[in-house]
Design a protein around this nucleic acid. Structure first.
Lengths: 213, 213
DNA sequence: ATTGCCAGTTTTGTATACAATTATTCGAAA
DNA sequence: TTTCGAATAATTGTATACAAAACTGGCAAT
């Protein structure tokens, strides 16, 4: 991908993810351009992209703001994700066949069951990507990509403890089994629960964090 | 909205909708700029927007092409739309309350039951917009807006006959009733059928068109 | 005190020139 | 004929200057 626009995209994204630009903050093209070290043109591109991915919202007068991340917003994202990805799993079970099941099993087998957060995140990303690809729907894949690039989704896994990693892996294995047998509704259910559970883990962690303060 | 970018967006959209730019055709920024009468900058904006709405796709080297519209593509769009809008209806039934039901009933009552295609399209757009707004989920609304702006969705109603308009109105009334009673699953089912039926109407019309040739 | 409006400031929109990348053509070698 | 590569053309990317629009603050009228 083009260098400056990519730099702008990842740069702004990082500033949002690490909290430098908090929710509600206005994003000014010129300021960002100076900060990232590119001109306004690639910044504008990046803002459009981030808007498509729900990272930022635009006012009616075209001003950009960092999107909210209230618990309601997160709930909304997880709900949509559960629905869309449940659908992806169902379709994958229908059209993926044995080949998909084999690829998924390989990914699951490679996953260490240790507590390495980054290793789990890699495995998790691979696994979900394979299922989404297996569903064979470009638009579905695009919509999910836009939803899942949301900051909060990334952070959720950080609050997982060892037991939750294991539980996730167990669910992944069950999903492989469902897909192996071509049972669409089983696959959908497992995926839906898998994602809804992730939401509640996050929710509890967020509340615990709030109590600490 | 800004004038040139808007002109570019609607201009390119029209060129795609009326078939001047057929599926698969490459869109060249400079050529479009000349054609529409603006510079490349607003054209680029418009292309990004049209990409978000699945009107165009980009190659790995960032070249833009008019998106395919095979029956499979249409099926995919209607399937996603049925799922998302079914969810919207369910949520609307849960959170919308009597106020939403009243607004919906007004829209339905205002709809003439004659065969005026444009009048029906207006009513239909209003009705669905009200339900989506009633669901109170910005991201869901955004995703649906992107899906439904697809060319084919617009064209579907054109092939409706009088009986199908009446059937649509009937379903709208049933939806109001479900929302009035706060029955989320009833609302979801009616909406899902409503949209899936629309798909099959389109599908048949497409096949009939093919046979004529 | 409140409202409305005007001037100044800030921010985004647009055009355009040039740079970088990607595709294509054409000819030479196998 | 086919394939490879270099030259050339076509296309998209980026920076920048200027235009247009939106916001802000203060002042006047009520």
């Amino acid at each position: 991908m083009s260098s400056a626009a990519d730099k702008a995209y990842t740069g702004i994204r990082s500033l949002i993810l690490d909290g430098t630009l908090p929710p509600g903050e206005q994003l000014k093209e010129e300021e960002l351009a100076e900060r990232i070290g590119v001109s306004r043109t690639p910044i504008r591109d990046a803002l459009r992209r981030l808007e498509a991915e729900f990272f930022i919202t635009r006012s009616d007068s075209q001003r950009s703001f960092v999107a909210d991340q209230s618990v309601e917003d997160i709930d909304e994202i997880f709900t949509l994700r559960a629905m869309l990805e449940g659908h992806a799993a169902a379709r994958a079970a229908t059209v993926g066949g044995a080949a998909l099941a084999t690829r998924l099993r390989e990914i699951v087998d490679k996953a260490g069951n240790g507590g390495d957060v980054d290793a789990f995140l890699d495995h998790n990303a691979d696994f979900h990507a394979e299922i989404i690809a297996g569903a064979g729907s470009d638009r579905l894949a695009t919509m999910l990509a836009r939803l899942v690039s949301q900051p909060i989704v990334h952070r959720t896994a950080r609050v997982y403890d060892k037991g939750q990693f294991e539980r996730s892996l167990f669910e992944h294995r069950e999903l492989v089994e469902a897909i192996e047998r071509g049972d669409a509704e089983w696959a959908r259910s497992v995926m839906t629960s898998h994602i809804r559970r992730a939401f509640h883990v996050f929710e509890e962690a967020a509340q615990a964090l709030k109590r600490e303060k």
